[in-house]
Structures are given as structure tokens and as C-alpha cells.
Design a protein around this nucleic acid. Structure first.
Lengths: 168, 168
DNA sequence: AGTGAAAGAGGTAGGCT
DNA sequence: AGCCTACCTCTTTCACT
């Protein structure tokens, strides 16, 4: 871990392809970046070992699962002690409605991305899961109308042929 | 699309396993939920066709790619016309720094999750990519200290054996 | 709908250039 | 380091229950 590896344009091509479709076969991946399958396997293994490539996951349609309503909750927690923050984080991650959690710098301490069945479910989540807790001083609920994901995550300045980077 | 399918506990097990590791082999997946590989293949195909399971993607370590600084930008856009919103969305999705984009109900219209190399990169992104645009009236930058992802996304009330659900 | 078997394709390791 | 080959496992189809 925290290992330093150099990513050349071939590695970046692999990264891009894997982010577009994590289930691509190694053979097809190798063909796409123009190397032999065995070489490709080695490249991917090294990027996995370095921590550049982490787990693969499928995207699931929240609406199709009966959770068509999504929201961002901006939460303020007091006091800002580890003894308070850590249990709060653990609690939020245990909630089945939680999709993502962000610890922020700013007036709002946390942003929680949640998916619920309906307005009643959202109300119950906010009241019972957040404002009921003594460390939570404020919750702002922002409904999500629509969401998009950005393109594949790549290094800044893609024109540079090879950079020494640190995995972490 | 928008097809109605029933998800039984076996389907939910498949969903959970695929969200934990999208690259699991079909054979291992079938063993995990206790069905034959051919049956498992059929289940996954139907969930893909129904839109419940969408594309698979690998998680990439932003810090390892030279983008260790992440932030949420709360953006206000005026006026709220499609002729204004659509080009703004297109612009944001084209930025290489964009990881996700959310259209919200509330005083802030959009939340943009971005990953940059350093504070200078963040400043340039905010100034050149957002406040420079005439439709953008305000940008609040919130640094992300740490982030977590929730568990596998599953239907509400998991005790119900089978529900009729709508993909979309 | 679920299964089992069989043909075909792909993954993976080792040695070589 | 990259590649080729050979083995071997897995995927996928199809007839059957």
C-alpha cells in the first residue's frame, strides 16, 4: 500500500476501459489498449496491488428497488470530538438508506446521500435517524431531482506521458 | 425498460454479491446464492434487461491518480430555465474534475463533486469553470475531509419475501 | 423456471525473447 | 518488461425435467 507506481498511457487506457465496464474480459481489454492478454493481466494486477484500482461494483437502479426518492442531508454535529464523530459515522453507515457519507469542512459537518421509498420514509429517516440523536444539532434536507456521474477519473494534465504518483 | 419484475430473496442475494464485487465469476455467484450457474446467468440477465442492474465500474483511488483533493461545490444558477440548465449540466459533465453532479431542490440548485490536484487546481476550477459563467450566481466550496460509501443498495423492508417493483 | 452436460471461449502461469 | 503457448477453468447454450 501507499506504493509509488508510474502510470503510462497504456495504464490510463486500461483505467478508462475498466471504469466504463468493470466486467470487460481481459482479452478484450488487452485488445483495446493494444497489448497481449498476459501483459494486460500483469498491468491490472500491479495497479490493484498499488491501490490505484480498488473493488469493482455494479450500479443498481434505486427506483427499480423501491427507493425512488433520493436526498442529500446536510448535518451539523456538536461537539467536534472524535468521541462524538466516530459513533455518528458508524451509525450513519449502518443505516440501510445511506448511499454515501462525506465529512466536510464548512458550516455543515456532514453530507449524507440517502435513498428512500417515499416522503414518509424520508421523514422517518430524518427524524428518527438524525435529529433524534443528541449530537445532531441541525439537518437540512435537499431533495435530489436528478443525478449524473462524471466520466472516468484520470490524472490531471493527460498530455504528460508518465508521472510518478503515490497510491494512498 | 421500465419493465416490472419481481425480486425474490435469491435475486437480492445476487444483487448484494454483485455490489460487493462486480467481477465475481458466475460460478461463484451461483454457489453463493445456492443455484445452478445457468440459472444464475438467467437471473442476472433478466435483472440487467429490466434495468435493475446497470453498468459495472471499478473504484479508482483519486489520490493515487494525482487528485488527492476533493470538494463539493454548491452552485446557484439563474434563471431556472431549461435553456440555461441543460447547457450548464453539459458543461459540468465535460469537466475532467467532475465526479458526480446532483440537481437539487433547495436554495442551492446543484451540488458538484469534484477531484483536483491541489488548492490551486480547485481555485482555477471554481473561478474558470463556474463563477466565470454568466448563469452561475453563487458557488460555495466545501472541502471533503473523508468519504465513505454505504452498504449494498437493497429494497426497503427486506423481510417481505417478494415485491412487485418497477424499474426505471 | 430450474437443471445438467458438452462445446467453446477465456483466464492464468511459466518460460522465452 | 512484454509476449506466446499450453493448460485448465469458466462461460454459455440447449435439450430435458
Amino acid at each position: 500500500m501507499h506504493q509509488s507506481i508510474a502510470l503510462d498511457p497504456t495504464d490510463l487506457g486500461i483505467l478508462r476501459a475498466l471504469q466504463n465496464d468493470a466486467r470487460i474480459s481481459n482479452k478484450a481489454l488487452a485488445a483495446e489498449v493494444g497489448i497481449a492478454p498476459s501483459t494486460c493481466l500483469d498491468r491490472v494486477s500491479r495497479m490493484r496491488a498499488a491501490g490505484v484500482v480498488k473493488g469493482a461494483t455494479v450500479e443498481v437502479d434505486a427506483a427499480a428497488l423501491g427507493r425512488p426518492l433520493q436526498a442529500m442531508l446536510a448535518v451539523r454535529v456538536r461537539p467536534h470530538h472524535r468521541a462524538v464523530l466516530n459513533p455518528f459515522v458508524g451509525h450513519v453507515l449502518k443505516l440501510p438508506e445511506t448511499r454515501a457519507l462525506y465529512h466536510l469542512a464548512g458550516p455543515d459537518d456532514f453530507l449524507v446521500h440517502v435513498a428512500v421509498a417515499d416522503a414518509t420514509g424520508l421523514q422517518r429517516l430524518v427524524v428518527d435517524g438524525f435529529t433524534a440523536r443528541t449530537e445532531v444539532t441541525q439537518v437540512h434536507t435537499m431533495l435530489i431531482f436528478q443525478q449524473w456521474s462524471g466520466g472516468p477519473l484520470l490524472p490531471p494534465e493527460p498530455s504528460v506521458p508518465a508521472r510518478r504518483l503515490t497510491a494512498g
